[in-house]
Design a protein around this nucleic acid. Structure first.
Lengths: 151, 151
DNA sequence: AGCTTTATTGAGAAGGATACACAATAACTC
DNA sequence: GAGTTATTGTGTATCCTTCTCAATAAAGCT
């Protein structure tokens, strides 16, 4: 959960025998410049890159998203929409969690420093190397509670 | 997060204009009798039911799992395996969370009463009706840390 | 109990997100 | 700068999940 630069990303990739490519660097930059609280699906990222004139294939995008999630650079969010979303993984005080309406997918972010501490402590206790820690609250928002729609 | 019986499930379904079917009752029973800490995928459930002589279609299983998750009866778990798992949703002191190795999917359960309280408080503050609250810790287990396998 | 309404089921097909295969390319090491 | 090999891009494949729709069967009412 440290702030990555192209240089530090390259160092960490090379250390494992991997390579820094323009595609990976571009994708990292996109996420770093994303307004706080924004998260992208693979397709969102593909479209955003296309708009900016970068042509990176969907395969590369999926591979890069998974790679960076497993390096701890990105968080993989399951926001109850049938596909994953990704956002930059930041330490406190930017670290946050999600309250999600399972009906309309409306999502509210909230912060709680204790949770990250609990996560770190738990991972450490079991000898696990922490990548990400997220509290997901599934609920029904006020609007959907009032609606009579099924489920 | 209350303990359901066939009767209380029926009452809650009927209240919304829905119906209690033998399929739904059977599936609820399966989850209630599942050893603590066990969770099933849709296919797991299908196979388990088949073994016991119950022929419930996959369509119905998927529909029932989603229905019960949205009623707060089941928890929908994303254990980094490409498909969802479900388990009965129980209050403290049975309520628990998951520490998951993103490489080998090894999962450890742990308890922390504070998290459920945080979840309840957050949902309430925003006027959301709480269904489930789970802390997911993505990490790399000791074994996978030692392995030299990619990603 | 029997009747009516309509939610639910089952079977198969469809959909959509993600992963795969492999030749061409290009990043790293020496 | 040359060799090695990780990575990319294109198209294809795969898997999980949802949809369609006729047949069935709960729930409510008389």
């Amino acid at each position: 959960m440290t702030a990555y630069t192209a240089t530090s990303l390259k160092a960490e990739l090379n250390e494992r025998g991997w390579r820094l490519t323009p595609q990976r660097e571009t994708i990292l930059t996109i996420f770093q410049n994303l307004p706080k609280g924004n998260h992208l699906s693979a397709e969102d990222l593909y479209n955003l890159l296309s708009e900016e004139g970068h042509h990176i294939s969907l395969s590369t995008i999926y591979r890069t998203l998974k790679l960076m999630a497993r390096m701890g650079i990105l968080r993989e969010l399951e926001l109850a929409e049938g596909h994953k979303h990704y956002e930059i993984n930041q330490p406190a005080p930017y670290h946050h969690h999600h309250l999600i309406c399972v009906r309309c997918n409306k999502t509210i972010e909230f912060k709680n420093d204790g949770i990250l501490k609990t996560g770190s402590r738990t991972a450490q206790k079991e000898g696990y190397h922490l990548l990400d820690c997220q509290l997901i609250i599934h609920a029904i928002c006020p609007t959907c509670q009032r609606s009579l729609l099924p489920i």
